[in-house]
């Protein structure tokens, strides 16, 4: 079959059905854009899990009294805590931070913010044990072991914060994907409608094709190619939309959070990863919807 022949037919088809085609392309683009957003969030969450997995630590804050009386952890109960941590097989490393060291770190962290530096004093901070676990998920064991022990103020766990961050991200991902699915349903119906209208406007042409002996497959092919082309154009727009969203919105609004390392950057690789997925889904969605419509609703 001649490619040029089919291309001409498809372009003619688009022209004749232009408003419907535009509606269908835009709906597909929105659906795939949202889906792409959802996929990117899911991938980001995975990357974050990997990145944070190594860094997550449990912090055992000592009471202010304890912090001030035994700054170098020479006596009980500080040494007891240290011994118990060393005895715990879940623990990988233990790092004692005195009140003074904590204050140093505080000063560094807020170097640019004199208001905060003013209100912070060494006495307001606690000495602490920074405990890294072989398996960060086991933080609860440590929390149970040391919570309420003499000299212990509180046991803080970064993974609690991360859990909240992840559940927020998962929520956004799920919402995005649900909206994407609803949009995909709309896109599916629009594709079906587009194919039906196209088949109707070209019924003379297709009936003549059938009359001269064109196979059903050959008669349906231009409609399939038309729908798939529209689907791919929709996917292309969705990808452009995601690139635009990255530079115009995400990078601007979340720039500081990304630079500080809390959220990973949406880099080129992520967009390159998501693009073929969206194109395949756009083309597949259109092909399936067009095929089913041609089989069930159109007599060619």
């Amino acid at each position: 079959m001649r490619a040029g022949f089919v291309v001409t037919e498809v372009l003619n088809g688009f022209r004749r059905n232009i408003t419907m085609t535009i509606a269908m392309i835009l709906t597909t683009a929105i659906s795939l854009g949202l889906l792409g957003g959802g996929l990117i969030i899911a991938r980001m969450t995975d990357q974050m899990r990997d990145v944070y997995g190594d860094k997550v630590e449990v912090t055992i804050y000592l009471t202010p009294d304890q912090s001030a009386q035994d700054p170098d952890c020479r006596a009980s109960p500080c040494t007891d805590i240290n011994k118990q941590l060393q005895a715990n097989t879940d623990v990988e490393t233990i790092d004692y931070e005195s009140q003074a060291a904590a204050y140093e770190r505080y000063k560094q962290q807020f170097a640019g913010q004199p208001e905060l530096l003013e209100i912070g004093t060494p006495e307001a901070l606690s000495a602490s044990f920074h405990v890294k676990l072989f398996d960060p998920q086991r933080y609860r064991v440590i929390a149970e072991q040391f919570d309420g022990k003499p000299g212990v103020q509180s046991v803080a766990d970064q993974s609690a914060f991360l859990d909240r961050l992840f559940s927020l991200l998962n929520g956004i991902r799920n919402a995005t994907i649900i909206i994407a699915l609803i949009q995909a349903l709309a896109a599916l119906l629009l594709i079906s409608n587009m194919v039906q209208i196209a088949a109707y406007t070209r019924r003379t042409e297709t009936s003549i094709m059938r009359l001269v002996g064109a196979s059903r497959w050959r008669t349906q092919l231009p409609f399939m190619i038309e729908a798939v082309t529209a689907g791919i154009i929709g996917a292309g727009l969705a990808i452009l939309g995601l690139i635009g969203a990255k530079f115009l919105f995400v990078d601007k609004a979340l720039g500081p959070v990304i630079r500080s390392g809390i959220l990973p950057d949406i880099d080129g690789a992520t967009l390159v990863w998501v693009s073929p997925i969206l194109i395949a889904i756009g083309a597949g969605l259109a092909a399936v919807s067009a095929y089913v419509t041609l089989r069930l609703y159109v007599r060619l």
Binding site: R210, L211, V212, G213, A214, S215, R216, R218
Partner: peptide, 8 residues
């Protein structure tokens, strides 16, 4: 599926 071939 043979109708097209017949019409040819």
């Amino acid at each position: 599926s043979k109708v097209a071939a017949h019409r040819r």
